[in-house]
């Protein structure tokens, strides 16, 4: 199996590590080997959080700039900050609070690199459903709609059901479904 590289970014407290875990556990069931790298300690107090996830038979845990197939960002500025990770023909998924995404100067670069981009108001979706810190689940739902790497919405749904703490399970699934339907519309 060829390797698939993810970079997940956002701010401290947005649940980047939980989002990483959902993708990793889903990939694990699909028979992928997994390597990942996380941010802890003083570095974590800074606001910017980044997580690397590599599916397939690789030796090292960090995604090299220019080699991420997917960049999932829970904050628009963090998406821009981590653009150098994306490979040619990669796919950028970002939260955005604005109607226009991405910025013009970024758009030119993405087009040049044949990088696809799709954005959703993940923070707003989560807030509207009464779960302001669950934008990560909206992002996973949105991503699931694109069926990348042959991962289906059912695969992710199953993982979320398995690993969510009992008291968050229903709300997690609710936010996931809203992200999924938003993604399905965006894809069409």
């Amino acid at each position: 199996m060829p390797s698939i590289n993810f970079v997940l970014s956002g701010l401290g407290g947005q649940g980047i590590l939980f989002m990483t875990k959902i993708i990793a556990k889903t990939a694990l069931r699909r028979g992928y080997n997994i390597m990942g790298a996380e941010t802890h300690g003083m570095a974590q107090r800074g606001g910017s959080v980044i997580s690397h996830l590599r599916l397939g038979d690789v030796n090292s845990s960090l995604v090299k700039p220019g080699s991420a197939h997917f960049l999932l960002s829970l904050e628009e500025n963090e998406a821009y900050r981590n653009l150098p990770f994306l490979a040619k023909n990669g796919h950028l998924y970002s939260d955005t609070a604005l109607d226009i995404f991405p910025k013009d100067s970024v758009k030119a670069y993405l087009d040049k690199m044949a990088i696809q981009y799709d954005a959703l108001p993940a923070g707003k979706i989560a807030l509207d459903l009464g779960a302001p810190v669950s934008s990560n689940l909206a992002m996973i739902g949105f991503f699931a709609a694109f069926q990348e790497g042959s991962f289906t919405a059912d695969d992710f749904r199953e993982t979320i059901e398995t690993i969510s703490p009992e008291r968050f399970k229903d709300i997690n699934l609710l936010v996931f479904e809203k992200g999924l339907s938003t993604g399905t519309v965006a894809r069409e």
Binding site: G46, G47, N77
Partner: peptide, 24 residues
């Protein structure tokens, strides 16, 4: 090696918020 210079210049020019470590 694909050069990362262009994209790094692009990102540096975006004036992204500096997020230094901060007390909660």
């Amino acid at each position: 090696i694909d050069s990362q210079e262009d994209v790094q210049t692009l990102v540096n020019g975006l004036d992204l918020p500096v997020r230094k470590p901060t007390l909660c």
